[in-house]
């Protein structure tokens, strides 16, 4: 165990001081007004959040706005928009404006972002189409299996996510299960792996439960009398679904869309395994910028762009569900 504890001494000191401060604050407030001020209970969390959430976000912003030697610059964002601009600048110095102008605007980063957004959109749409009926049927009072079904949807997530993705490989590859079946039917091997559809399949597989849970939760909260009332007032089941159930499940749908869309934009690993690495997504781009190119400044800029995009889309979604009733997983 000892070899693991490699924090420098001052960080232990800092943690000790934080804890002592917390205890002192609580003790003080007990002495002064008999009751602990309950909001003080959040002190450790406040300290934690400052160190592990606020500070890292500020660091991302700092790195994205500086170059490798720490000078303020907007170059990283320019590289995002035009990945060839450094080469063009260098050419301009050597060969003059005309030749430099022949260097086209490099758009690797923007293309990757657009592709990722498109894939995330497709994945979210498919999850919604598959997941809504599933949630609807689960919430059906006649099913009597609701709670068990929820557990059945959770259990697959206990299998390591990487291994589940790899398992799809053994189903889809040329010598895999599906192709063996097809071959025995005389349909010949079909190329199922290393394309966009395979990546999409892997994404839907991984994110589907996150669409089903929130919708199920919001449908399950609905008063069954509402449906009966609609029927009494002359609605047929389809009309009830369309006019009563669906509008009331909007918060769940929004929460589901958030929980699927956000992580799927930055999907990482799935494209590499099922897409064979020829279709990079934004998550892979951030990873390779940090770890393979070692360009933390550009990597931070990419992360910042991702964060801003997500915050924008969140605030749009919030508008549609102002009370945040959608609920999360719990």
């Amino acid at each position: 165990m000892r070899q693991y504890m490699t924090l420098p001494w001052w960080s232990w000191l800092l943690m000790g001081l934080g804890l002592a401060l917390f205890i002192a604050l609580v003790a003080l407030s007990i002495r002064r007004n008999r009751g602990i001020k309950r909001s003080l209970f959040a002190t450790p969390y406040v300290l934690w959040i400052i160190i592990f959430t606020v500070l890292p976000c500020l660091l991302i912003a700092y790195y994205s706005l500086t170059d490798a030697s720490g000078n303020l610059t907007l170059d990283n964002f320019r590289t995002f928009w035009d990945s060839n601009h450094i080469m063009r600048e260098q050419l301009r110095g050597v060969a003059g404006d005309e030749i430099a102008a022949t260097v086209v605007r490099g758009s690797v980063n923007v293309d990757t972002l657009v592709y990722s957004l498109w894939m995330a959109f497709l994945c979210t749409a498919i999850c919604l189409l598959l997941g809504y009926p599933a949630a609807l049927f689960m919430a059906d009072r006649n099913m009597k299996l609701g709670a068990t079904l929820v557990v059945l949807f959770i259990i697959p997530m206990w299998m390591n996510f990487l291994l589940r993705t790899i398992a799809w490989m053994s189903l889809l590859e040329d010598s895999g299960l599906i192709n063996s079946l097809l071959r025995s039917l005389g349909l010949g091997p079909v190329q199922l792996m290393y394309n966009q559809q395979a990546v999409l399949l892997g994404m839907v597989y991984n994110f589907l439960p996150f669409m089903v849970f929130p919708i199920y939760t919001s449908l399950n909260k609905l008063d069954p009398k509402l449906g009966e009332a609609a029927a009494d007032l002359g609605c047929n089941p389809w009309r009830t679904l369309y006019k009563v159930t669906m509008p009331l499940s909007v918060p769940g749908v929004i929460s589901g869309i958030t929980m699927v869309f956000m992580p799927s934009v930055t999907t990482f690993f799935i494209p590499r395994v099922l897409g064979g690495g020829n279709t990079q997504m934004f998550g892979d781009l951030i990873e390779s910028t940090f770890l393979f190119s070692g360009d933390w400044n550009l990597g931070s800029a990419l992360s910042l762009i991702m964060m801003v995009l997500i915050l924008i889309s969140l605030s749009i979604l919030r508008k549609a569900d102002p009370n945040g009733e959608g609920g999360g997983i719990a």
């Binding site: 490699t6 420098p8 592990f52 890292p56 992580p263 997500i310």
Partner: peptide
């Protein structure tokens, strides 16, 4: 905020924090 941030951004930002504070990455 951390729930809505993609995992990869959280991971990268924490990595930057540890590098910035000069803490070698480890079990802790």
């Amino acid at each position: 905020l951390p729930n809505t941030m993609p995992d990869i951004v959280t991971g990268v930002s924490l990595m930057l924090l540890f590098i910035f504070a000069n803490i070698p990455r480890s079990y802790t």
